[in-house]
Design a protein around this nucleic acid. Structure first.
Length: 489
RNA sequence: GGCCCGUUGGUCAAGUGGUCUAAGACACCGCCCUUUCACGGCGGUUACAGGGGUUCGAAUCCCCUACGGGUCACCA
């Protein structure tokens, strides 16, 4: 079998979004699975909307996800350059050949004229399609247009009848009637090729064997197939993956929430969680496992398990999966990711000194079991900063009204004062000592301490909470809480 | 509107003519575990879009309808 070569070919008109990331992922996984090559090419022929900033965002997002490529922008390769605007010369010859063979022709219609034609079609209830007016221009007529300063586009001459069949790896054979396809532009009036043309030429010259892309391209495929045939070029296999939808089942867009990969990154999602989640959107392993690393996915991915139906993006499930990865992650990693959120929320100042770093590490340890994405650390931050205790409600004050509470708090303060260091393990035995000393059952000891420390009846384990607070804050909060409910210590 | 694709629980999905009184996961509910919450464990509610065929037998094959989506650019 010939060596698999696939590509992800984004147009740099915005950040990498969820759908694009999944397309890139599927290509990457397919290449890895079959020992092939994965190429990243930039389709920047839309000069108006393309930008280097978007290109950088897309490439950065791919790298962050761990989706690496063997050839392409940034890494180079034997088919460089990998930006279409840098490959312009290579399209000209093919376009000329198409014209010479009668497969394409110059069209001088202005935008206004085309618009008028379109409206006329719609008014008559016909398909709004180019009618082929310039198909048989005489040399004299062309000269006249040229003299008038009109710059032509080049259009592909679509046969009036016949079928084009797309043999799709996920959807099977899909037939399109040529009569339904108008003569489409392959080179714009400024000499830049359009997508449908450039994509064919590049896929051929880069030796692409499989084109795996979103379903929105399915109806473009017959146009591309026509070009392959006109030029007798070897065709790749096609696989069109269905779209990712928002909660209301329409195509995922901004009003559905975060659509850019970078947005998930900045909220503290882990790349391996996003990759895992995306892989499961439209593909399934077939068994009951569903937590997979990129490497594991690379061993299992195949196109025949890709679903035909579109999938709704379910944030709840992403959150759950991300939580799984956060719990598995090294605490230091979570601490490092958490620090910027605490700085941004004003709890800490850059640069972080050793004490601040240690505190962040303890906070991260305390919340790692609870959060679904790292930005949520700020939800818990008030628990760890400040001397004041704000009671969540009267119920919390009631907890401190228990008759055993003064003795418990006094014993607790004494134990903390006596402790050499407040490590999780140290705190655990210290709390045990309080229980012993006061002869109280667990809940009657731990809950008052928790409430005195945080004003709440739930939260992180005390063995993590107390070290993160540190001795000073522990004393201050206990004192503060005691005063508020009128307890003498 | 034309063409194309799709339709299993709220969501992701397994399922390719009998083993389907339809798997698993998320979410939800309940119970257990636990010094709280979370985690974890156990259990539960909820689905083959509708209608016609074909067949001894259909979630699985065919047709129609409905609904959803994509596409019809000098955007990709």
């Amino acid at each position: 079998m010939e060596k698999v070569r696939v590509r992800f070919a984004p147009s740099p008109t915005g950040p990498l979004h969820i759908g694009g990331a999944r397309s890139a992922l599927f290509n990457y996984l397919f290449a890895r699975r079959f020992g092939g090559q994965f190429i990243v090419r930039v389709e920047d022929t839309d000069l108006e909307r393309s930008s280097r900033a978007s290109e950088a965002d897309i490439l950065d997002a791919l790298e962050w996800l761990g989706i690496t490529w063997d050839e392409g922008v940034r890494v180079g390769g034997p088919h460089a350059p990998y930006r279409q605007t840098e490959r312009l010369a290579s399209y000209q010859q093919a376009a000329a050949e198409l014209v010479a063979k009668g497969w394409a022709y110059r069209c001088y219609c202005s935008e206004a004229e085309l618009e008028k034609e379109r409206e006329a079609c719609i008014a008559q209830g016909l398909d709004p399609r180019y009618g082929g007016r310039c198909r048989e221009l005489t040399p004299a007529a062309e000269a006249a247009f040229q003299a008038a300063g009109r710059r032509p586009v080049i259009r592909f001459k679509v046969p009036d009848e016949g079928n084009v069949v797309v043999d799709d790896l996920v959807r099977g054979e899909v037939a399109f009637d040529c009569a339904g396809i108008g003569d489409f532009v392959i080179v714009k009036s400024d000499g830049i090729p359009t997508y449908n043309f450039a994509v064919v030429m590049d896929d051929v010259s880069m030796g692409i064997t499989h084109v795996i892309r979103g379903e929105e391209h399915l109806s473009n495929t017959p146009r591309q197939l026509l070009i392959y045939e006109a030029l007798s070029l070897p065709k790749p296999r096609f696989a069109h993956v269905s779209l990712i939808l928002g909660k209301d089942r329409s195509k995922m867009s901004k009003r559905h929430g975060a659509t850019a990969v970078a947005q998930y990154r900045s909220k503290g999602y882990l790349p391996e969680a996003l990759v895992n989640f995306l892989a499961l959107l439209g593909w399934s392993p077939g068994d009951e496992e569903e937590v997979f690393s990129l490497a594991q996915l690379s061993e299992r991915f195949s196109l025949d398990r890709v679903a035909k139906n579109p999938a709704v993006f379910d944030l709840d499930k992403l959150n759950w999966l991300n939580g799984v990865y956060i719990r598995q992650a090294a605490p230091e990693r979570i601490a490092e990711l958490a620090a910027p959120f605490l700085v941004q929320a004003g709890y800490l100042q850059e640069p972080l000194d050793a004490g601040a770093r240690a505190k962040v590490a303890l906070i991260a340890a305390a919340v790692q079991e609870k959060i679904e994405y790292v930005a949520q650390v700020t939800d818990y931050a008030p628990l760890f900063f400040g001397e004041k205790v704000a009671f969540a409600s009267e119920a919390e004050k009631a907890v401190l009204a228990g008759e055993q509470v003064p003795a418990v708090l006094a014993a607790f303060v004494r134990q903390v004062d006596r402790a050499e260091e407040l490590s999780p393990a140290g705190v655990k035995s210290l709390l045990k000592a309080v229980t012993k000393e006061t002869k109280q059952k667990g809940g009657r000891v731990f809950m008052p301490i928790r409430v005195a420390l945080t004003g709440q009846q739930h939260g992180p384990d005390l063995q993590y909470l107390i070290p993160a607070l540190g001795r000073e804050l522990v004393f201050a909060r206990v004192k503060n809480a005691a005063e508020q409910v009128g307890i003498e210590l």
